[in-house]
Amino acid sequence: MLEAANLECVRGDRTLFSGLSFSLNPGELLRVAGTNGSGKTSLLRILCGLLSPTHGEVRWQGGNIGSLREEYWKEIIYLGHSSAVKDGLTAMENLMVSCTLAGLTIDHEQARAALRCFGLAECEDLPAKVLSQGQRRRVSLARLILSDKLPLWILDEPFTALDTAAVDYMQTLIAEHVARGATVVLTTHQEAQIAAATLVTIDLTSRIL
């Protein structure tokens, strides 16, 4: 269970949000909405432990993520704004490296299959610098297919730069993962159509829950 307790985030001179509390059970999907600069990315970075909140804490299965550290990071996947794709490496190498860093042991076959799911079958041995923005995004998203065991996905704008087909595919992927009993937190501008049993939306602009 992921719990946020009385979170406050101040960036520079601006209080982005304060007194933000919620808890998410397995099988729940949280969509963080809000205008640009309302603190969506900051909230996600706080939830995954990259940013420490000015006040409050984030708990995973009852423990503060600040003290769980690697224990917590082992169980989550965070895909941020930047795709974490290296220009100098091929799509395949990029995926292998990011999986190894995350502690996933995968072989080439699995990686190839994951890339194929995202329509990158022909591009797997091309250096990432020749790939389009959308293709680079897909390379980093391909890790999700290999992370189906992880109980928490935190995705920052997973649909940007993707075409309609890929957006549809992502939505099914997320819906399946939630149906599996995992928790997903995501931000998006698009009205995402994700079939989830429990969909919660936090709007950081007006703080409507």
Binding site: E8, S18, G19, L20, S21, F22, E28, V200, L209
Partner: peptide
């Protein structure tokens, strides 16, 4: 699902 908004404050300190 439980979600609430606590009043922002410095009462923690």
């Amino acid at each position: 699902m439980r979600a609430e908004t606590a009043a922002a404050g410095h009462n923690l300190k």
